[in-house]
C-alpha cells in the first residue's frame, strides 16, 4: 500500500458519488435569502421554522455522515503515512487511532440518524474537501486543517443540529448530537495540543500550519455556511471552540473570515441574478 493516498482514490460503494470542492464552488446557484426564497425565509440559519427545514436538515445530516467517513479515513491515514518517532510521535498516532474509533462511531450514529430522517446512503453528492485537507505531507498541517479547522466546523454544525432537534422535539437528534459534540471537542483539542507541542521550537512550521488552517476555514466557509451573522446557517459556537483550545483572537479571526466568505458568496449570487433572464 502506498504512503499518502490521493483523495480521488477514496473507496466508496456504488451508491456514492463524489465531487471536489472546486466542483462545488463552480455551482453558482443560491440557497440563501435571495429573490423568491426571501419571502419564504426570514433567516438563513437552520431552524425548524424554515419552510425547507426538514430537507435542509436531511441534506446537512448526509453531509455530516460523509464528513465522518472522511474524518475516519483521514485519521487512519495519519496512523499509516508517517514513520513513528521520526515523522510523527507515537502518542500522536495513538490519538489518531483513538479518533478512528470515535469517527467510526460517528458514522454509525449518522447512518442511523439519516435512516431516521428518511435519507438513503449516497442520496446526495459527497464533497471530499475534508479528506483533501487530510492529504498534507506534514502531520501538523493535517492536525491544523482537519482537527482544528474542519472539526471546529463540526462543533458548530453539531451545535446547530442539536438545537434543531431540541426545538423540533426530535428525541434522537438532540441526544446523538450531544454525544458527538463531546467527541469533537476532544478531537479539536488533540489538534491544538499537538500543534503547540510539535511546533514549540519551530515558529515557521507553526505559522505555516496556522495559515493552512485559515485557508481550510475560508474554503469551507465559502458560501457563508457559517458566520456570526444572522444570515449564516450555522452559528459559530464560541464556547465550544474556547474549550477546544482556540484563543479569543483566533475566534474573532474565524468569525471575520466566515463573514467575508458570506459577503463574497452574496456578491457571486447577485452577479448570477443580474446575468440570468428575469
Amino acid at each position: 500500500m502506498r504512503k499518502f493516498f490521493p483523495v480521488e482514490d477514496l473507496a466508496r460503494d456504488e451508491r456514492f458519488n463524489q465531487a471536489t470542492n472546486a466542483e462545488r464552488m463552480a455551482d453558482t446557484r443560491g440557497t440563501s435569502n435571495t429573490g423568491v426564497i426571501r419571502k419564504a425565509r426570514s433567516t438563513n440559519r437552520l431552524t425548524p421554522a424554515r419552510p425547507d427545514a426538514t430537507d435542509a436538515a436531511r441534506s446537512l445530516m448526509h453531509g455530516i455522515m460523509v464528513g465522518e467517513i472522511q474524518a475516519l479515513e483521514g485519521a487512519g491515514r495519519t496512523c499509516f503515512d508517517f514513520v513513528t518517532g521520526e515523522e510523527a510521535p507515537f502518542e500522536l498516532k495513538l490519538d489518531m487511532a483513538r479518533q478512528c474509533w470515535d469517527e467510526a462511531r460517528h458514522v454509525e450514529i449518522s447512518v442511523k440518524l439519516s435512516e431516521w430522517m428518511g435519507t438513503e446512503l449516497g442520496q446526495f453528492v459527497e464533497n471530499t474537501v475534508l479528506f483533501a485537507a487530510a492529504c498534507s505531507q506534514d502531520p501538523v498541517l493535517r492536525l491544523a486543517g482537519v482537527n482544528r479547522a474542519l472539526e471546529g466546523l463540526a462543533i458548530d454544525v453539531f451545535t446547530t443540529m442539536k438545537e434543531f432537534g431540541e426545538l423540533a422535539g426530535d428525541p434522537y437528534l438532540a441526544f446523538c448530537e450531544d454525544w458527538m459534540l463531546a467527541d469533537e471537542v476532544t478531537h479539536v483539542k488533540m489538534g491544538s495540543v499537538w500543534l503547540r507541542k510539535i511546533t514549540e521550537n519551530d515558529p515557521e512550521r507553526r505559522a505555516k500550519a496556522l495559515e493552512f488552517q485559515s485557508v481550510v476555514d475560508k474554503i469551507f466557509s465559502y458560501g457563508g455556511l457559517r458566520s456570526e451573522s444572522d444570515e449564516s446557517p450555522i452559528l459559530l459556537a464560541r464556547r465550544f471552540r474556547e474549550l477546544a483550545g482556540f484563543s479569543d483572537g483566533e475566534l474573532s479571526e474565524i468569525a471575520d473570515v466566515s463573514l467575508a466568505a458570506l459577503n463574497e458568496r452574496r456578491e457571486a449570487l447577485e452577479k448570477t441574478f443580474a446575468t440570468s433572464p428575469a
Binding site: T54, A57, R58, E115, W116, M117, G118, A168, G169, D170
Partner: peptide
Amino acid sequence: VHKQRWHYNFRNRHGF
C-alpha cells in the same frame, strides 16, 4: 417514494 422522509417531515411539524 421513501415514506420515512415524509414521516419525518410530518413529525417535525406535528411532534414526535
